[in-house]
């Protein structure tokens, strides 16, 4: 299968690069084999295995005709994007603010709200998720959540 061969090549290339990096590692005085010893074994094995994957991928000629199913990749990308923004914003906006924004955005994009009722649902979910989880974790479970460096909140 072509896809396997491509994946195998990517893995092999990345491992080869890392292997090259391990060559620069100094030996340490305390451990007889040094910090590069095990990485070289792992990367060597990974390179060998991924080359096997490339060969067996090319050997097996034909992909089985994949089931035609329309998958909504745009939505997946959007969700990853929104989550990425959330993670990026957390240390600046703080947990409560960022979480409320994220939950609202994710919910609204997964199920676009119609009318005031729909927006009410989005808002309620966002506020509840952010503040309830903050309350439970900081107040009752002694788990501190990120505070915003811009907001102090």
């Amino acid at each position: 299968m072509r896809r396997d061969a491509i994946a195998g090549l990517a893995v092999a290339a990345a491992s080869l690069f890392l292997f090259w990096l391990t060559l620069g590692l100094e030996k340490s005085a305390l451990v007889p084999v040094g910090p590069g010893f095990y990485p070289r074994i792992v990367l060597g094995v990974t390179i060998a295995l991924s080359l096997w994957l490339v060969i067996s991928g090319l050997w097996t000629k034909q992909d089985k005709a994949p089931k035609k199913e329309r998958l909504n990749y745009a939505l997946v990308a959007l969700q990853f994007g929104i989550f990425g923004l959330y993670v990026g914003a957390l240390p600046f906006l703080g947990f409560r603010l960022a979480t409320a924004l994220y939950t609202a955005a994710a919910n609204a994009t997964l199920d676009p709200p119609r009318g005031a009722r729909g927006w009410g649902r989005v808002l309620l979910l966002a506020v509840l998720t952010a503040f309830l989880s903050h309350l439970v974790f900081e107040r009752y479970l002694q788990v501190l959540l990120p505070r915003g460096s811009w907001t102090g909140f």
Binding site: F92, W150, T151
Partner: peptide, 13 residues
């Protein structure tokens, strides 16, 4: 946003 944020930060401080 940064202005509001700064304001909030000052308040918190």
């Amino acid at each position: 946003l940064p202005i509001i944020a700064a304001g909030l930060a000052a308040l918190a401080a």
